[in-house]
Amino acid sequence: MNRRTTALSAAVALTAALVLTGCSSADADAPALKVSGAFMPQPVMDMAGGFLTITNGGDVADKLTSVTSGLSDDVTMHETKNQKMQEVKAFDIPANGELKLERGGNHIMFMELKKQPKQGEKVSIELHFEKSGPIKVDLPVEAPNHNPKQH
């Protein structure tokens, strides 16, 4: 009986050690992404912009590789350099850093909208990453001239 108790105690301790080790090493080797400040200005044509901040609290960098949405079959990512917009394949999200998609800078573009979302509605999108799993986000539709940097 004493041997059985000792063996059982050893098995429980080993299992607990493996679980704790697995959790800590998985967390250290993965990005920890969080989305905030998401919005879409109400479109005035058949295209729209999307803006948000992705914060990476992990020690590993990641990349935003694509965005999908039921609002448009043509969703692209653009960077703005020297007041010129150009499409990019991915945005870097640094370890312990953030990616800001904002008016006048890097952003998401929705082309050939299937419908015109109105202020007060929400547009669902899914963000896809190189390392992390997809994240679903609802973009609140704001006034056409909405800009949080000016508030």
Rank of each mutant, 00 (worst) to 15 (best):
E87F: 11
S69M: 01
A61L: 02
H151W: 14
I135Q: 01
V75I: 12
L127A: 09
A7L: 12
L139M: 07
R103F: 02
H146F: 14
D29N: 15
L52M: 14
A61R: 03
S66Y: 03
L71W: 04
Q150E: 13
K114V: 02
T55G: 12
T68H: 08
A48C: 00
A48V: 00
T80N: 12
T53K: 10
F51S: 01
R4P: 06
L99S: 07
D73K: 11
C23D: 04
A32T: 03
G133I: 04
F91I: 06
A90R: 06
D92W: 11
D59V: 08
A13F: 07
N56W: 11
T68R: 09
K114R: 14
G58C: 08
D138E: 14
S25K: 10
G120T: 01
E121W: 01
G120E: 00
K114P: 05
H78G: 00
N145A: 07
Q86M: 14
N106K: 11
M109I: 05
K115L: 07
S132T: 05
Q42E: 14
L8Y: 10
T21A: 13
P43R: 04
G104S: 03
S69F: 00
G22R: 08
K149V: 00
A28T: 09
E130N: 12
K118F: 06
D27Q: 12
T5I: 15
K89M: 13
H107G: 03
M85L: 14
A95C: 03
P134H: 13
E79P: 01
G70H: 10
K34W: 04
K122R: 06
L101T: 03
S69P: 00
G22D: 00
T15P: 01
A143K: 15
L71E: 02
A10Q: 09
K136E: 04
G105R: 11
G70E: 13
